[in-house]
């Protein structure tokens, strides 16, 4: 497929870890927003943002759920910032088999931040709205990008790897459960 120049809105959530007070309101509201019907339940475990916090080491890092990864990385990252050692993978957004982060608690399926996609669209994502401490700030900017639609093949590989990991039946059950709820 030929690449085309296209304008698109890049949605950014700026995370200021210094302002985070560890309240987990972002987790609460994200899970409530994605419940179906909307706001009918809450469970931070289903949230697409998790606050990695270790109060005694003064570590507070809100992390957004990114792409699903079928296998864990071969090399791991470990950061030291301002004299504080962060745990392995602390900043990684992937839903990955190496850790229990960003997976649905009952199905084990991966979670991903969708920037609160909804119709009509929200002024600001819910986690940003509920973070009164401005640790999360929403920004939109326009960018010119070379748009390449995901090919069918890529999508299929994605599904296949999910099925490999979780089993086809479990995936189908979850899809059935989600569509029933919706």
């Amino acid at each position: 497929m030929k690449a085309e120049k296209k304008k698109r809105i890049v949605k950014t959530i700026r995370v200021d870890v210094d302002k985070c007070n560890g309240c987990r309101a972002c987790e609460v509201v994200c899970s409530a927003f994605h419940a179906s019907p909307k706001y009918s339940s809450n469970n931070p475990e289903r949230s697409r943002i998790r606050v990695i916090h270790e109060p005694l080491r003064d570590i507070y890092v809100p992390v957004y759920a990114g792409e699903y990864s079928a296998a864990e990385c071969a090399g791991r990252d470990k950061y030291t910032i301002d004299g504080k050692d962060y745990d392995e993978c602390a900043f990684c957004r992937a839903s990955c088999p190496s850790r229990p982060l960003f997976t649905e608690p009952d199905s084990g399926l991966p979670l991903k931040c969708d920037v609160c996609e909804s119709d009509p669209p929200l002024d600001e994502p819910m986690c940003v709205q509920w973070c009164l401490n401005d640790a999360l700030v929403y920004e939109e900017r326009e960018e010119e990008v070379e748009e390449e639609a995901a090919t069918r093949e890529e999508l299929e590989t994605g599904l296949e790897s999910l099925a490999n990991k979780y089993g086809m039946q479990k995936m189908l059950d979850t899809v059935a459960r989600i569509s029933k709820k919706g």
């Binding site: 909307k38 809450n42 608690p105």
Partner: peptide, 21 residues
């Protein structure tokens, strides 16, 4: 714990929570 807490009247309840904030 990783279980849900359910709300009886979600939309109405959420409006109150937003109001509180």
């Amino acid at each position: 714990g990783t279980k849900d807490i359910n709300i009886a009247r979600p939309a109405e309840f959420m409006e109150f929570c937003n109001g509180v904030l």
